[in-house]
Computed example of a mutant assay.
Amino acid sequence: MTDAVLADAAERRPADLSGRNDERELLDGLLRGAREGRGGAVALLGEAGSGKTALLDRCAAAAGGARLLRCAGVQSEAALPYAGLQVLLRGTLDRPGRLTERQLTALRGVITLDAPPAGDRFLVGAATLGLLDELAEERPVVVLVDDAHWLDLETVDALLFAARRLGMGRVAMVFAAHEESAVFDGVPGVPNLRLGPLSDAEGAALLAGRAPHLHAAVRDRILGLAQGNPLALVELLGALTTAQREGSEPLDAREIAVLPASWRVRRIFDERIRALPGPTRSLLTVAAADDTGDVALVVAAGERVGAAAGDFGPAEAADLVRVSGQRLTFRHPLVRAAAYQGRC
Rank of each mutant, 00 (worst) to 15 (best):
Q227W: 12
R221D: 13
R254E: 11
D185P: 00
D200W: 03
S248Y: 07
G203T: 06
Q227G: 07
P197V: 10
L206I: 14
V258C: 10
P250D: 09
R254P: 00
D252K: 00
I273T: 03
R194W: 15
A204M: 04
R194M: 09
R254C: 05
Q244G: 02
L237I: 02
H215L: 06
E202S: 05
P212M: 09
G247R: 06
A211S: 15
G209F: 00
V187F: 14
G209I: 11
Q227E: 15
S199F: 02
P250A: 09
R194Q: 12
P260M: 11
L231C: 07
V265S: 13
A216V: 05
H215S: 09
R266H: 04
P250K: 02
D185Q: 08
I256V: 14
I268A: 03
I268S: 00
E271Y: 00
R210H: 14
N192T: 14
A201E: 10
P230C: 08
L198F: 06
G228L: 12
L240D: 12
L198Q: 08
P212H: 07
A208F: 00
E249P: 09
P197Q: 08
A208H: 00
L223A: 09
R245E: 15
A232M: 08
V187N: 15
R264K: 08
V265K: 04
E249Y: 03
V265W: 05
D200N: 09
L259G: 05
G186A: 15
H215E: 14
F269G: 01
R266E: 12
I273G: 13
L236N: 04
F269M: 11
